[in-house]
Every structure is written in structure tokens, then in C-alpha cells.
Design a protein around this nucleic acid. Structure first.
Lengths: 252, 252
DNA sequence: TTAACAAAGTGTAAGAAATACACTAATTAG
DNA sequence: CTAATTAGTGTATTTCTTACACTTTGTTAA
């Protein structure tokens, strides 16, 4: 079974591979997750360009020729949202031939997490508008953006169980209930309050600030913060496993 | 903090994004894992082209302009090794500006698993040679291939704990010891024999064939096969968790 | 001032899973 | 028939996960 692909030989039997330029648009798309007490949100822009002008889509942009992928993702994110220094993870590359109606576009999808309250949204010239959308409303985006979203959301669901990334979405001081709601929003499952608390506290990287929530019309909750240093010391080597079963209450 | 990036506007304020071609080479690289009773191996080719002519490197190749990424990865794999219909997973895209001395090359890394004994290696014109290398010997590859290898190997380590992919590396009939050695090779940890067997058998997707190993100079082991159907029925929804602690024997 | 409301906070028993650990059984080779 | 080699097996202990409901603390409004 010897290899005799003409294509292969045509493409490769040259000393300089750069005789063959791959002409296409190369982009990054970002899924930017935010959280606002109750709902997990995604930052979308209203496109100001064809194709799909006026539709809500993922904020993405071209990669420059002399720019690393991660740099491009960070730059695009910063340009479109003003957000810098965030956790940014490459998830998957989408390159189907037909994914863009104007030609071949290959895009590397990244996701990041930001505190909604830390940033004001700024609209760049390529977009008409930028806004947070509840994750339940993001179906029907142009291109294969729905698929990209699902891939990134699934990655987030995986990562939340091994890495302390949830705290990126909350204010520096937060209550355990806020944290639980965040986990529930990401995992799309209700969790048992006592089990959640037992587990998360047993990990020993939350610090009880001995402060109370203010301005709520009920018993105020204690505030906690995430101790990055302690996390590193305890889990840098091994990682952790956050596994709390979804509630199955009321099965009598 | 309004967005005023010149670059952004230059690149984007045109109705057709394809005024801007991204000129670069676009490739896929494959990490092909194999296993031969004792060692986990990776399939490398000896490059027949500059740069790095004569060095062992990952088998990779150009993506055609009208070809999906997955298709390209499968084609390249088939062309270079004759292997078809394998589990193929996209791992990560590498696109550092300086990763190829001749210019910008962006590569999507895939890994796959094959049974070494099922395939004979065939050398294509772009390579001088193709051969299996023990994973301990693959350091020092050209480009950023070491980094690509590590990324794929880590992904494999993750996946082996959630998916029944190990069986792709073994003959259809195998012994539990072979399977354990495979897990140990991938995880780079010794496992306790009894715990390993208890766990893997409790998953209930191995079928005892009531046959014995032949041609060994010791007590022959029973042969098992993997039951894909049963696996699907039991785990399709939820996935599984294979977690067997590494042996910590002799801590007296 | 007090009653109604809302969410915070808390403990335990039962079951499941993970771990540590060492000897006997079956076969071949010499 | 003995030595060598690997296969095969069970249990007690510990750790983790799960299920589950009432009391506490504060605010608001009558």
C-alpha cells in the first residue's frame, strides 16, 4: 500500500513550502462569559458588516500576520471589550470549507471569563452594539457560531470542575450562595446546598472574611474570598476534583 | 475607553473581508500513538525536506484550500501511514509567529491511536523514513513539535480516563495485564493489579472470551474483548470515570 | 413591636468507592 | 520434578458522596 497521492507530491516536492500560500482569512472568535447574580451571560456584538449585518454574533476578528494566536485573541478581546489580563483558553479551531459564505475562514475559538461589573461595554467600529446575552438566548447566531459556543461552553463545564476559574466571574468578595449559583449556572444543574458548601470549604482555598453582605432584605451572608496563593500551594501539583452530584431531592 | 485601534479599522472597514488574505502555510500535524506490549510509541517521519532535513519529526502536511480540517487530518494520516477510520481528535492549534523558520505556519494538532501490528509503515516521498519511536525518545524534535507532542500526550492522559480509547491500541483479544500495561504506559504510573482489575471489570464492558493466551512460557492469561455495544448502552449518556490510584506500595 | 418573609446556615447517618495489601494457581523450560 | 514466571484472587479500612430538614438572622411592612 504505497503512497502515490499526486496531490501530496505536488504540494510537497519543493524545497520551499512557501511556494504554496494558503489564502484564507484567519480569525479568532471569543466567547466571553460573564455572570450577574443569576444568569450566565455571553458577550455578543451586533455585526456592522456583511455578511449577517445587524445580527448578533461572537466577537471575533482577524489575526495579524505577525501576531501570535494568543496575542491576537487578547488583542481582539481588549479592543472589543476593554478587558485585559484575563484567563483565556484556546478551545478548538473551526475550519469547515463552507463556514463563511465569502470564502475560506479558519477561526480559533477562545473563551474567557470576566466580571460583568468590572467593565463597561464599548462598541468598536466593526460592531453596532455589544451586549450581554443570557446563554439561553444565544441560539441562532450566524456562521457556525452556535457550534463554537457549545464547544466553549462544554469546555467551561469541564474546567470548572478542575480549576478555580469560577472566581473570575464573581466580585472579589462573594457569598457561598453566589458561588453556588454560579456553579449551577455553568453546570446547568441544581446542587445541594449543604453538600456544595461542605465540598467547596473542604478544599480549603476560600477565606472567610468575617464580613457580612450588606443591603439585602434578609439575613446577610458571610463574605468569602478566593485565596490564590493557598490554592497554588495545595493544588498546583495535582489539580482538584469538584464533584457534587446534582440534587435528586423528592424521590419518595 | 473607546476603541480606536487603527489596525482594527484598517483591517475591517471594508465590506468584503476577503480583501485581506492571510498568507501563510496552514497544516495539520498528527501524533499517532501505538503500543507494543510494553511501550507507548509515536510514529515519526524522517524529514526529506528543508528545513530540518533528515531529522525525525511529526508527520504533518498541508491542508488543501477546499478541504475541511478533519478531512485534511484524516487524509494526511492515511497518506503517510495507510491508516483509515481511526479515532482522531483535534487537540490544539499552534500558530506562533516564529515557529517555522521560513514563514508563518499555523498547524492544527490531532492525535490518533492505532494498533501497531495492523499497519505496515509506508514512506511517502516527503519523508525518507517512517518509524515508531518510544515516547521517551521523542525529545528534541524540530519546530515546536516537542510542545505539540506534550499537548497531545496530556490530552490522551485525560481521555483515557473517560473514554474507552485504550482498546484502539490493543489487538481485539487481549489480556488484562496487557490492558494494565497500556494504562500504565499512558498514565506513566504503576497501578495496583487487583484494584485495576476490580475497577475495569466493574465497568462491565469487557467480555471474557473463555480463551487462553498461547505461546507464553508461564501460566496463560484469559483473553478479553471490548464490547462496544455494551459500552454504549452503559456509558453513552454519562461517560465513565476510570480512576485507579498509582501504587504507593511499601510505605512501612 | 411584632408578624411575615427571605435567605443563611448547619450535621449526620448510610452507602459507595477507593485503597492497601500477599499469597496461591497454572503453565513452560530445563 | 523443580525452578521460574506471570495469572489470578478477597477483604478490611478509610475516604468520599449522598440524601435530607430545621433553626437562625436579618429586613420590611402592618
Amino acid at each position: 500500500m504505497d503512497i502515490k497521492s499526486k496531490n501530496l507530491e505536488t504540494k510537497h516536492n519543493k524545497n520551499n513550502a512557501f511556494d504554496n500560500f494558503f489564502k484564507s482569512a484567519f480569525t479568532v472568535d471569543n466567547i466571553i462569559f460573564g455572570f450577574d447574580e443569576a444568569d450566565l451571560k455571553v458577550l455578543l456584538i451586533k455585526r456592522g458588516e456583511v455578511p449577517y449585518e445587524n445580527q448578533w454574533a461572537l466577537p471575533g476578528n482577524f489575526v495579524y500576520q505577525d501576531e501570535d494566536l494568543n496575542t491576537a485573541a487578547k488583542r481582539v478581546l481588549a479592543e472589543l471589550t476593554g478587558v485585559k489580563n484575563v484567563h483565556l483558553e484556546q478551545v478548538k479551531t473551526f475550519g469547515s470549507v463552507g463556514r463563511h459564505p465569502f470564502g475560506r475562514v479558519i477561526t480559533v475559538a477562545y473563551y474567557s471569563l470576566i466580571k460583568i461589573s468590572d467593565y463597561h461595554l464599548h462598541v468598536s467600529s466593526i460592531a453596532q452594539e455589544a451586549a450581554w446575552h443570557s446563554i439561553s438566548e444565544v441560539k441562532g447566531m450566524p456562521f457556525d457560531h452556535d457550534e463554537i459556543f457549545v464547544a466553549c461552553f462544554n469546555r467551561l463545564k469541564l474546567n470548572i470542575k478542575r480549576q478555580p476559574i469560577g472566581f473570575e466571574l464573581l466580585p472579589p468578595k462573594f457569598t457561598l450562595t453566589q458561588l453556588q449559583h454560579l456553579y449551577e449556572a455553568i453546570l446547568e444543574e441544581k446542587l445541594d446546598k449543604r453538600n456544595f458548601r461542605k465540598k467547596i470549604l473542604s478544599m480549603d482555598f476560600l477565606i472567610d472574611l468575617d464580613e457580612l453582605q450588606e443591603g439585602v432584605a434578609h439575613r446577610p451572608a458571610k463574605l468569602f474570598k478566593f485565596d490564590k496563593e493557598r490554592y497554588r500551594r495545595l493544588y498546583e501539583e495535582e489539580g482538584f476534583h469538584f464533584d457534587v452530584a446534582p440534587t435528586k431531592h423528592k424521590k419518595k
